[in-house]
Design a protein around this nucleic acid. Sequence first.
DNA 1: CTTAAACACTTGGTCAGACCAGTTTGCAGG
DNA 2: CCTGCAAACTGGTCTGACCAAGTGTTTAAG
Lengths: 239, 239
Amino acid sequence: MPAREQNDECPEQGRSQRLYERLIAQIAEGDLLPGTKLPSERTLAKELGMSREMVRGALSRLAAGGYIQSAQGRASRLCNLMAPHLQLPLEGLGDDLEFQLQVMEIRALLEGECAWYAAQRASDAELAVLAEEYALMYERGKSETTLAKARADLRFHMLIAESSHNLLLISFSQLFYERYFNAIYGVLSRTLKRFGRYPEGIRGQHAEIHRAIQARDAEHARRIAREHILYTRALLAAE
Amino acid sequence: MPAREQNDECPEQGRSQRLYERLIAQIAEGDLLPGTKLPSERTLAKELGMSREMVRGALSRLAAGGYIQSAQGRASRLCNLMAPHLQLPLEGLGDDLEFQLQVMEIRALLEGECAWYAAQRASDAELAVLAEEYALMYERGKSETTLAKARADLRFHMLIAESSHNLLLISFSQLFYERYFNAIYGVLSRTLKRFGRYPEGIRGQHAEIHRAIQARDAEHARRIAREHILYTRALLAAE
DNA sequence: CTTAAACACTTGGTCAGACCAGTTTGCAGG
DNA sequence: CCTGCAAACTGGTCTGACCAAGTGTTTAAG
């Protein structure tokens, strides 16, 4: 059907503007994730059956509004819209036990909420990706460095956050994990030093979080995600 | 010189973006007036030696930001940027003498400031337009209706505001004159009914405002613009 | 075997020309 | 003087081409 055929829903708005608004909606619904690449202009134009110029117009306005960032020669990326407005404090306290415990308290809250929504909203494809990542994490966890273990853990939880389809949870998670990576890594180091390995309780809880999300048991996913962190917190606080 | 020649001032920014910022600057400096038409895309492209698509990109982002309004088939127009944020009250009190006097008090302030800046900043072309409008106003003032007289007066003062090159004065003037036209027209009606004609004092003051601006006497222009209104106000308040 | 350079590919930035569709303006005819 | 129509003007969209910056892969040299 020719591109100019009157088959568009909102004829009083142009095609470029409608694409702009559709992309905004996708961002708001957590379908376009901060940090990820957009399809190229040519790809979008072909998929949507419109000219590259109309796509460029929409993307150009998204860039002007701070939603995406584009530069010649590389793919456009979604921005974290919370980043300009949120400066999380105390990055330098990564080694402080008391502060590490506070970070864990926020993790418990954050990851509980993410798990709750992910259990409800994750698409089948997202669940598949989650399962794959969990399997990899489990498999590689036997031989990795502490640093690699910490990164894998956050990747797993970031995937859960992304499956929540809540842009605020996703954005905050990104900033939180990035800012407090040292504290989180410090927690893992401390734990491994204390027990010589991942305590069985923790390993089992990871498995249970994963199972609860795959089973779409929101209540259970949230509870176990919280307990997972608070359990580790309690172990460390006993020092 | 080919359009792609590296002769642009800010090479790290694209041509479309630089045009966007240049137009924003022109708006901010009161050089592109709310309510006026922009040159067409084709005209701008030709004058600036760039493609129509680059011009469209810049204008599209201006429209998205609320600076201009464009629609198919008609020229793009500059928006009054203050309009969405300012709701002037009490439009329905146009016949109320007390309120009319209040409106005159604000006119005195507003028109004094506009005259002060216009005397300093009007370009020679703007002074010429002002002279022409004044001559027309004087000439037609002998035979026009009260309504037409009121319109002509506000056109004259709006031109002075535009010559001030202060976007806030220009924007506010537009909104103020539009909102309170009935009160201003009521003042003129009341004055003409009281004295049978424009009081000589008022006519002479119009002339003096005009002379002061043409002579670039800012101090005098402001004083006489204020006195012009306050004189009329005093006449009416004596009722 | 490692590193650096070259090449190919991908991507955004810009251009020219054409066509579509909505609006405005001017002119002719009644 | 009013109305209708045609032409011109304007923004919206499209196609194809080219430029330039960045990325990834391959090859050659040390």
